[in-house]
């Protein structure tokens, strides 16, 4: 949480997850479809195929005084340094896991990296919501199995399809709500365990 010079309160939300899991697609879907949020520009640092090189960023205003600055990270392994930079000052994370069975190792690796950066804060001062994305795939992995393998059995989670937007808005709303609740009632919140 930060305040800017106009006295507006800012919260930073980051979409995290392995490459091609659907982070950019999900943020883009929210940007194009969710009403009631006053959105600013959409900034992307990506290659010509649309893969994120550094980050996507868009500010979304809930009220005149409360702004969510929403980012995605670049999921490809070599962009670790960029991911660390984008994670600075984060208030809430949406972990976008890829439900294709051949991406499970990548999901686990991405989650391990996230934990190495923010270990003890995750699920406490940093809210965490899990999107089990690409559930539309015919061979999509089972939700419970994925959560168990990721060690995320207790985190709020949704099965999603970022292409159609299924449950994407709910995931986003969950993380914004958890962030606000944490800041309103810091002691009572912090329910999501991540181990």
């Amino acid at each position: 949480m930060k305040k800017d010079l106009q006295g507006r309160i800012h919260f930073k939300i980051v979409f995290w997850g392995p490459s091609l899991s659907g982070k950019t697609t999900a943020l883009r879907w929210i940007y194009d479809n969710v009403e009631g949020l006053n959105k600013g520009g959409f900034t992307s640092v990506a290659d010509h195929t649309g893969r994120t090189l550094f980050f996507d960023y868009t500010p979304m205003q809930a009220t005149a005084q409360v702004v969510f600055d929403v980012y995605t990270v670049a999921g490809q392994r070599r962009h670790r340094g960029q991911r660390k930079v984008i994670l600075t000052g984060v208030d809430g994370i949406i972990f976008v896991a890829d439900s294709s069975p051949d991406q499970m190792e990548a999901n686990i690796e991405s989650m391990a990296e996230l934990r190495s950066f923010v270990e003890e804060d995750l699920g406490h001062s940093i809210s965490l919501v899990v999107m089990l994305n690409k559930q539309d795939l015919p061979n999509a992995m089972d939700k419970a199995v994925m959560l168990a393998k990721l060690g995320l059995g207790n985190a709020p989670n949704f099965t999603t399809c970022a292409l159609t937007g299924e449950n994407v808005k709910r995931s986003f709303r969950q993380v914004t709500r958890d962030i606000l609740m944490y800041h309103l009632y810091p002691k009572a919140s912090a329910t999501a365990s991540t181990s």
């Binding site: 009403e35 009631g36 949020l37 809930a62 009220t63 808005k169 914004t176 309103l184």
Partner: peptide, 19 residues
């Protein structure tokens, strides 16, 4: 937090519930 800040956070929460 100041009362004003808490009020702003509550207003944002209310706004999000609407959508």
């Amino acid at each position: 937090k100041t009362d004003a800040e808490r009020e702003e956070l509550r207003a944002a929460l209310g706004e999000l519930e609407k959508g």
